[in-house]
């Protein structure tokens, strides 16, 4: 199901917790699983659950609760845009509108070529740098004004 590299990451996460508390690593393992698969197909959730000796339903509860897990396939680049109030005050809405127009898709949608998915995000804890985007859950982009947005989309090959 998972590459040796991902399994090694799983082990590193499991090692952080007391031996009898393997389940604690579920969030991290799901994240690594998603990183490998691009999203979280049910089989991956079940495999993580089995790896941690927890009920698949408990792992699914976690996967469906935290909003950075993708339970449906997403584009190669998932761009999450914070539109919460502090960001909106500094251009969060506008940046979102700009990207949507540019890509021709709305929030929750993926471009026809499967390259981009747009998501409306909640507070990322970086309101001073608004507008803020996160690409693929990992890379945070600050001060996303039109020039920066154009550059980002350009760089996403």
């Amino acid at each position: 199901m998972f590459s040796a590299e991902t399994l090694e990451k799983f082990d590193r996460e499991v090692a952080k917790y007391p031996v009898e508390q393997k389940q604690s690593a579920v969030m991290a393992c799901l994240a690594h699983a998603q990183e490998e698969k691009g999203w979280l197909p049910p089989e991956a959730i079940e495999a993580v659950a089995n790896y941690l000796a927890m009920p698949p339903m408990a792992a699914y509860e976690v996967a469906s609760f935290y909003n950075m897990y993708d339970l449906k396939p997403v584009g190669k680049y998932k761009i999450t845009i914070c539109t919460n109030l502090p960001c909106a005050l500094s251009g969060g809405y506008h940046a979102g509108e700009y990207v949507q127009k540019k890509l021709g898709i709305g929030y929750g949608e993926t471009t026809a070529d499967g390259k981009f998915t747009l998501k409306e995000g909640e507070c990322m804890g970086a309101c001073g740098d608004a507008p803020v985007f996160i690409v693929n859950n990992r890379s945070m982009c600050s001060h996303m004004h039109p020039e920066q947005i154009d550059k980002l989309l350009e760089e996403c090959k």
Binding site: K16, Y17, Q21, K22, Q23, S24, A25, V26, M27, A28, L30, A31, L52, M54, A58, E61, V62, F65, Y66, N67, M68, Y69, E122, C123, N137
Partner: peptide, 25 residues
């Protein structure tokens, strides 16, 4: 150790945070 969240404001509530470390919602 560091434990990485995955997108839930509520985990800033201290007991939700503990549940989250325990590998739950």
């Amino acid at each position: 150790f560091a434990h990485h969240g995955y997108g839930a404001y509520i985990c800033g509530e201290e007991t939700a945070l503990l549940e989250s470390i325990e590998g739950k919602k």
